Structure formats: structure tokens, C-alpha cells
Amino acid sequence: MQIFVKGLTGKTTTLEVEPSDTIENVKAKIQDKTGLPPDQQRLIFAGKQLEDGRTLSDYNIQKESTLHIVWR
């Protein structure tokens, strides 16, 4: 499925993911596209910070959802 990651600059990155992907895995995909290391990424969805060990489905993140990224 496709999801979007929007940064503070307003730039949006598209990712191809599975609902079973962990947040850690998603951060690795973001690094592949942007070069930003996972330890500098904070992902937010529906006002919650996403924890590395959880999956996208744990947070009810579905296709075409938009996550927000904040740099540490």
C-alpha cells in the first residue's frame, strides 16, 4: 500500500509499505529516500508519536494515510 510522509518543509515523500511493517522498517525506507537516519526521525500520526516496535496496523494506518515527520 502507499502512504505519504510529510515533513516540516511541506515536502511529501511517498512510500510503498505493508500494514505489517514495523515503524522501524518504515524509518529505514524513509532513510533510503531522504538520507535522514532513523535515529533522527520522529513519526507522528493522529497526534501520536509512533514507536519503533509497533506496526502500521497497530496504529490503524491505512493506504494513503499521511504521517508527519519531525527531525530530532
Rank of each mutant, 00 (worst) to 15 (best):
P19N: 05
T12D: 06
R42V: 15
Q31R: 13
G47Y: 05
S20R: 09
M1P: 01
T66M: 10
V5T: 03
L36N: 04
E18Q: 09
K6Q: 10
T14E: 07
G10Q: 07
F45C: 03
I61D: 00
H68K: 08
T14C: 06
I30G: 01
Q40M: 12
T14P: 08
D21L: 05
K6R: 13
D39N: 12
E64R: 09
E51L: 09
D32S: 13
P19R: 07
F4V: 05
T34N: 04
Q49I: 15
A46R: 12
T12Q: 07
T22K: 08
Q49W: 13
M1S: 02
K6A: 07
T66C: 05
K27H: 02
R72D: 14
D52G: 06
D39L: 09
P19L: 10
H68A: 06
A28W: 11
I69C: 05
T14D: 04
G7T: 13
L67D: 00
K63Q: 12
E64F: 14
K6L: 10
P19I: 09
P38R: 14
Q40R: 12
F45T: 02
Q62W: 07
T14R: 10
Q49Y: 12
Y59Q: 03
L56E: 00
I69K: 01
R54M: 12
E16L: 13
Q31Y: 15
E24K: 11
L43C: 01
K27R: 06
I44V: 11
E24I: 10
T55H: 05
I44L: 11
K29S: 04
T14S: 10
M1F: 15
K33D: 05
N60F: 07
D32T: 13
D39T: 11
E64W: 15
D58W: 11
K11C: 11
A28V: 10
A28L: 15
R42I: 15
L8A: 10
K11V: 13
S20Y: 10
T13L: 15
D58Q: 07
L67H: 00
K11N: 12
E51A: 08
N25D: 10
G53A: 08
E18I: 11
G53L: 08
T9D: 15
P38V: 15
K11Q: 12
Q2N: 10
D21N: 07
Q41Y: 15
V26L: 13
S65H: 06
H68G: 04
S20G: 11
G47D: 05
G7F: 15
G7N: 09
A28H: 12
L56T: 02
F4Q: 04
W71G: 10
L15W: 03
K33E: 08
E64K: 07
K33G: 04
T34M: 13
V70T: 10
T22R: 07
E16F: 13
E18H: 14
T55D: 03
K11W: 15
E24N: 08
Q41C: 10
Q49A: 12
E18G: 07
L15F: 06
N25G: 08
K29Y: 07
K63H: 15
R72N: 14
P19E: 06
F4T: 05
